[in-house]
Design a protein around this nucleic acid. Sequence first.
DNA 1: ATGAAAGCGCTAACAG
DNA 2: CTGTTAGCGCTTTCAT
Lengths: 330, 330
Amino acid sequence: MASMKDVARLAGVSVSTVSRVISGAMRVEEPTKKKVEEAIRKVNYKPNLLAQGLRIKNGKMIGLIVPEINHPSFVNIINYTEKYAAEKSLNLVLCNTYNDPEKSANAFDQLLRRNINGIILSRVSDESQVKNLISNTNTPVIIIDRALDHEDVPNIILNNYKAGQLAAEHLIKSGRKRIACITGSQKIRLVRERLNGFRDILQKHGIALEHKNIFEGDFSFKTGEQAARFFLELNSEIDSVWAQSDLIAAGLITAFQRAGKNIPEDISVIGMDNITQSTMMYPTITTIIQPYEDMCRKAIEVIDTLTEDEKLEKTNFIFEPELIVRESAP
Amino acid sequence: MASMKDVARLAGVSVSTVSRVISGAMRVEEPTKKKVEEAIRKVNYKPNLLAQGLRIKNGKMIGLIVPEINHPSFVNIINYTEKYAAEKSLNLVLCNTYNDPEKSANAFDQLLRRNINGIILSRVSDESQVKNLISNTNTPVIIIDRALDHEDVPNIILNNYKAGQLAAEHLIKSGRKRIACITGSQKIRLVRERLNGFRDILQKHGIALEHKNIFEGDFSFKTGEQAARFFLELNSEIDSVWAQSDLIAAGLITAFQRAGKNIPEDISVIGMDNITQSTMMYPTITTIIQPYEDMCRKAIEVIDTLTEDEKLEKTNFIFEPELIVRESAP
DNA sequence: ATGAAAGCGCTAACAG
DNA sequence: CTGTTAGCGCTTTCAT
């Protein structure tokens, strides 16, 4: 790869002149500019990003740390983060932590050592540890998809209470009465918020969300299967379920079908996340959209303004969910 | 972030000494070594990777270029590539091209400008363009999941002919006679190879793969739906199908179910790829495994030995597929 | 065994 | 407007 020196020699100017025509910031005489540009073209010169990054302390990359790659929600986040990073000519470096605090710390370190522009943390599991990592640096860090009680750290989250409300309203509107809910771990704040929104709307319509109709698991397909088995064995008379993730919903639906139930006739199911898979089933899954694309765009945007040393007017960004009606709960 | 200079000052030695104790290559007196190590710990020093990368011309990263992120096969590749890269302390930088040649070229450039250790290209669409990109550099480039007729470029591929054979053998063994196949674009070599393997085995058992029972599309869910509609309208009497991707298989199955067909009783379906989703359906999809994990591990391994300036004994790595029997074709 | 000095490729004063 | 110089943080001769 050609370096700036090569270009300078070929154009008969100094490296600083080359640097100037590239940056475009300072004025350069037309003729010299032309010479330099031609030399650049001739040797197909592209500035070395490591040298540049070292010098200006800006690696032109953004780091994305997720606990799991092969999971539809994170795939969305990865996809959109890459998209909007690329739009700003930032490369995406992707780190998987497998929920392991040591791997998280490592990833964090590695990124900082690359003069990274900013780090996006997705679904961090251990709140205290994150605080530790973050406090050691002034590199922009932003949390997406899970709120953190920590001033200064920008949070990009969904209005999860509203999500629960949307689900409940739809079930009620379609005449369902014996309603169940399958949640992720209730240690997670957003899980409780979703549940509260769901319960409040039901209550408002005089329907109680019975304790035995709340099944707590994680956001996985397996949880959906387990929940279905649980309700079947209980001979529970539920006529509808809200699953707090589409993966849970998929697990539920297939397990119910296997047991001979018809979805949505016997039991209607609403999911959440609008993962790609939710349109690739029979029935397709009625779900609540998380506007991942908007959220990721905002994340990149925030990092960008923070990189320019500008202040952020606010540090919490809340996005609104939306219901999509499909076959599993018409 | 503390720099080497800070450590040196604190330990009362020169930067070169610090560098030496870190690299561990050269001998350093015990006492000085101790002092340096303590200083490192005290300021929590970590070498800056840009400076290091610039100096030794080794960015300690590997680049992965895919045409699409939100696709189960690529998710697998991303996942495993990250895993084995991380094991060697290499960061993964992920680039999405959307099958756009210009974006591909850009991604390629950006990576090279980062003194990247190696580039993994997945499912490149335009062969000629890739050759162009590759010939301009001596950075290791390896192609995964699609063969390229280009000496010097290591290829990591599946034995696709064998995959077709496995599918055919299973359908025949389970007594199916009126057999169909849904393929990706037959411009792609691996598609033709799969088809050949499939056809050859059928022929060997005296079963013809009729032309009207071959449906050509792409590897998508939509193709599966279209194919199902095609066979239904034709009132075709097929009793089994091999879909060249699980996504196609999923499209087929749901579309057939919607039309009242039972899978596998009426029509049995084999897919390919073993995507996560294939176990999350009812019925679960019988499929052909691509050993993505092994393939990605090999990719990293190849880049690693090429980075060490060692020669490669061979440049083509062929992996063997495996049949997994599940519900859709017992 | 250790330090001084050069240089990776770039940017940013500072002169002129 | 342009060239010279210093320096980002590191590794690697080259001396000692």
